[in-house]
Design a binder for these strands. Structure first.
Lengths: 191, 191, 191, 191
DNA sequence: CATGAATGAGTTTTCATTCAT
DNA sequence: TATGAATGAAAACTCATTCAT
């Protein structure tokens, strides 16, 4: 017997299953049928809720991005007003346990690929990119002045590079090591 | 009008077409039929020469890696013995016109994804990763001592991050800008 | 107009179509597409229900074997306890109208070939072989003692030989003639 | 440098390779390319000599049949005029080491299947069938009179049944055991 | 005599998506 | 709300066969 109010539950289950499936498979070549089975429903229902496969992927991306944003936001709140602490907090947030998990990194990498095909996916990724860079630049400005923007660019690229490295390694993610490297780079940027 | 000695010509044409196709499509979801057509032959012939699709991809990766290695090697020769010049040359080589072309970057990104599925692809990528890091570390050692290894890691990750950024941007690649950022980072590493 | 509970109907239709197709074609070189069309559905649906071609073949074999076993069983029941009547009944059952039809014989012959490639098919055929021989031997024991086993072997081989002959002839099967020969052989075995 | 007079050598090599390949593969699903490679030549050359695949198969059948006939003929010569000895010799010849080899049996079985598709193959097999039966009947006539024909039919079918059994078993062929059974059946036929 | 080159045609299998229930 | 039924379209891969050399 179908229940009322299932929609958000189903959608969340599908998003979760999508990320797990992509993470496990290491590729966007996952079938709607498998995602749906993992989420405990038929593929027809998955289509009912999302319309098509691309939209399932987009929802998963949005979920990851939202989780990521929340983690950064929390870190910034904790850092209060101190610019240097804020930059460090932003960097750290990228490698916290909820973002820098092996399967999330894998999904992330694949969404970069998706972005080459799907304009909405590209848009989402660009938003994330811009926001990260502008956050960093904003907090680096008082410390570095005109050079803040380039420094932000470098730090952001370094983060992405660390993700890529982790994506290639395949094993469990070593967040602390990555964090250490980022903080060292920050140190250098600040002389 | 079959001719003798076509094999190397056909193989090269297929490798070239594969990179172009992946670059254009922005995804590994390219068909052997399309690659073959672009290379001017039937898909059956492509299979005849490579056996299967994965092996076509691997040949394309090997080609890119070889091109890359050649560029780095040439740059190092030009830099002669000076460590600092050698590091700078290595960094520059990554963003030279033959490596940092839009379609090559796209192919590259996709090979990272392929590496999650195909062990041979992962092996190739790991070799490249290790070599880049050890090259950098070797030349940084006289300049930085114990910190050379971490610095090499950061510079290498920064390179990858720049590729990722370019991959996302999609437009024509701006090698000089990327080079500038890398040289700035090197400056910082060397105090 | 999809209906519920189609699975058993579809499976049965595919099994039937497979036997007909093999019988008509006289070879295992039948395509799933043709089988499916004959069964009134798309080849995709055939795959949905059976997974792959081999499993379609195996289901067809199992069907034939089950039909065969049922016919033998019924004949044995009718023969009651009398050993000689039981042996005769077993022999007759092999050439009854449901087993000794031209297309069934053709399918049978092809399953012998399939058994050389597919272990599950070989297993099925071995079971049938063993069962036939042990049934015969069991009922011949009281009549022939130690020689029962060899006699069973001969009668069983004779049955197979008759199938082979029919398979080669190609025309409509002449069950009564085959039965007559088998019963004559039985006569000889029993002196 | 191509040599003169290669034709019979090439043809023989192809026939041999065909039988081996079918025997090994246990199926007619062997490719011309594999047969040719096994015979040490290109598939193009195989086509040059035989025109098409079916004709390669037919040549292999003819070869087997000729070998078989020779063995029977030799046995009959050895048996001289004695009818009973001639029948026994004919039976024995079927299970001699050159005919009753595992791979030959496998090829044989597959040619039965081929005969359902290829009229020339069917013709060859019918000739063999008829000749075996008429040979047996001819020699049984002085011993059994009117019953000779039926007895010949039974013995011939028994031979085929033994081949089929061996074909299913798959292991090395046990000629002596089969011979023993055939001679026992002959014994029974002759009272 | 001999072969590498080449392909058209075909086959299995997969999958996103739709629809009646 | 939920799903089993159903399929069109596509893709990888295979192979007999042909042909120029």
């Amino acid at each position: 017997m179908p229940k009322l109010g299932m929609e958000p539950i189903r959608r969340a289950a599908l998003v979760k299953a999508t990320i797990e499936e992509i993470g496990e498979q290491g590729s966007l070549d996952v079938t709607v049928a498998r995602i749906a089975r993992r989420a405990g429903m038929s593929s027809a229902l998955a289509h009912h809720y999302f319309g098509n496969k691309e939209r399932i992927f987009l929802a998963a991306m949005r979920h990851l991005l939202a989780e990521y944003s929340a983690e950064v936001r929390d870190a910034l709140i904790a850092a209060q007003g101190d610019p240097r602490a804020r930059v460090a907090a932003t960097l750290r947030a990228n490698f916290g346990p909820s973002n820098f998990r092996s399967e999330v990194v894998a999904a992330w990498l694949n969404f970069y690929v998706l972005a080459r095909t799907s304009e909405p996916a590209a848009r989402l990724l660009r938003i994330y990119h811009r926001r990260l860079r502008s956050n960093l630049a904003h907090d680096l400005r008082p410390l570095l002045g005109a050079g803040a923007s380039d420094a932000a660019e470098r730090l952001a690229a370094l983060i992405d590079g660390m993700y890529l490295k982790q994506g290639l390694a395949g094993g469990p993610a070593d967040g602390p090591a990555a964090t250490r490297q980022l903080l060292a780079a920050l140190e250098l940027e600040l002389k």
